[in-house]
Design a protein around this nucleic acid. Sequence first.
DNA 1: TTGAAAGCGATACCAC
DNA 2: GTGGTATCGCTTTCAA
Lengths: 350, 350
Amino acid sequence: MSGISDVARLAGVSKSTASRALSGSGYVSEKTRLKVAAVAASLEYVPSSNAASLVTGRTRNVGVVIPYLHRWFFAEVLEGIQAALLERGLDLTLYDANPGTEGRRRIFEDFLARKRFDGLIAVGLEPEDHELERLLKIGRPVVSVVGTDADASVIGIDDNDAARRATHHLTSLGHEHIAFVGGGSSPRWASVDRRRLDGYLEAMSEAGLTARAQHIRSEVSLPGGYAAAVDLLGARSRPTGIVAVCDEVAIGAIIAARRLGIGVPGDLSVVGIDDHKYAEMFALTTLQQVPREQGRAAVELLEAQLADADAEPTHLALSARLIVRASTGPVDAQHSVMVSDARTGIDGSV
Amino acid sequence: MSGISDVARLAGVSKSTASRALSGSGYVSEKTRLKVAAVAASLEYVPSSNAASLVTGRTRNVGVVIPYLHRWFFAEVLEGIQAALLERGLDLTLYDANPGTEGRRRIFEDFLARKRFDGLIAVGLEPEDHELERLLKIGRPVVSVVGTDADASVIGIDDNDAARRATHHLTSLGHEHIAFVGGGSSPRWASVDRRRLDGYLEAMSEAGLTARAQHIRSEVSLPGGYAAAVDLLGARSRPTGIVAVCDEVAIGAIIAARRLGIGVPGDLSVVGIDDHKYAEMFALTTLQQVPREQGRAAVELLEAQLADADAEPTHLALSARLIVRASTGPVDAQHSVMVSDARTGIDGSV
DNA sequence: TTGAAAGCGATACCAC
DNA sequence: GTGGTATCGCTTTCAA
């Protein structure tokens, strides 16, 4: 394994010149640059990032703190981040900070303090106060995907607005009995869920339906949505519309409805938020966000902060796009589809 | 930010003694060890991993090369790896090597060569020949989760056996027309899929059903299984049993069956491989593997290789456990459940 | 049991 | 444009 001095010697130049030639910074004649590059290539020279980091203080590595890997949104964001980092030649150190685990504690107590990165991207982290404190104490730029930090750059959709529009979509179709499903299953609310519930409540209020607003708590997952919907739809008086906190919950609700023989959208309209990869298969009407792009954007924001130490924190609130598929319909059309469903086994939504 | 010389000075010892005291290697009197530790704590001293790595050659970092993040199996393995690494104080560098992407190419060409890790864990990587060559050339221990490398440690389930037992489960229930769904959708087979198909074919052969064996190609995903099953089950002569390449495909098939009014398990038995987190919700009979534990085991294996440079590569083939839920039943029971399904909207499987 | 000094492999300043 | 040299922060002989 050859070092830069080997390259320098074989190229007949000094270490400093070799370094300049390879890093591309500083004056080097084109001739020697070519020569050095050729030698480096022939030796398959790979610079030691440790040595370089030690002297420059820059690691060319980005840390990603993320609470879940198995949830659609998080996996997509992470893939977006990784893709953008690969393009830039930057490494990615993963910190899976699952809430309530010993691992998360150690990440905040020990791992982050090592500063093995030039900057951090926090994805849907929702840090406790003492965690946030740690995060800022590190003294490296932080970009959040989903969040509310005032001190860091944040990128995400306008959750309140998305839920409001989802709800409005149903009220404009004539629905009056609309439930919001998901969130609040654990004592500590995820703030995203909270914001979406608020958006729903505001839209219900605008439609004069505050009295009929109903929040069904559930875990934010497909089985969670399924379980909650089984209860909700099995009750005597069931809603004609469901706004789900996210697509996973929405899809769970659709599956529950089908199993209960409730036609979608004939007897029940369901709208989600996400545009999950399964959304199309379930013909789910939803408010689309593109987490992969959010991941890429986070890298771009971080890059800017890295280039210019005192760049102002940017707050990017993207707007979700309504995609109407076949899980929502006018409230009047009730039952018409249900019949065909029982006969053919396929309702009109596919 | 204080370095080890600050600690040394304030503790009234030399750098060397401070280093020994903190790293715990070499002779240090208990008294000075305590003193140094106290000073280090008061200064919130964090050693520079770059400096340490530069001199020791060890990074205390593990690279994980993984082709997907959004698929259940991969996300679970990754979470298992991360948890085990956090316990050991080791960092995790993520390389998302999505097949066919420019990013994957760069990972193998550039990123891995930097050797910013003491060892690698490859998860379901299925490297091309030239990629494998690169991998071994790095000269760092590699552990594979799922795979067939002779030169590296491998951990995974016996896929052939799992598929064979899944199939046998159906034949023992009297099924004769059993299709295998999934895999082979792209020209390049994933070898896992291939092995599972082989296991199915062997079991069919053992049951004297070779003539009726049928492989339905599909993408290995829930929508993929759904689409394939819609075609398969819509045909004139449909099977009474489905062995799916994995649970995601199996669940897609169940959803398709329900939509077509085909009762599960009344008219159709479905068995998967995985024990996916949604398996319970769909009452899916499956052969369980626990990817999270495979991730942990990979870390343990790697740790052993790291401790003892010439430890023999270990090949761990775990056995999947059959979990019988309610997606499979005797072939005779056909139609009985379908009727109740149509009446109540809920079949017997929940 | 401790300390002085020699690197690890690069970068960057400063003469030339 | 180029080369010598100090330096980054630590570990590790080797002597004392």
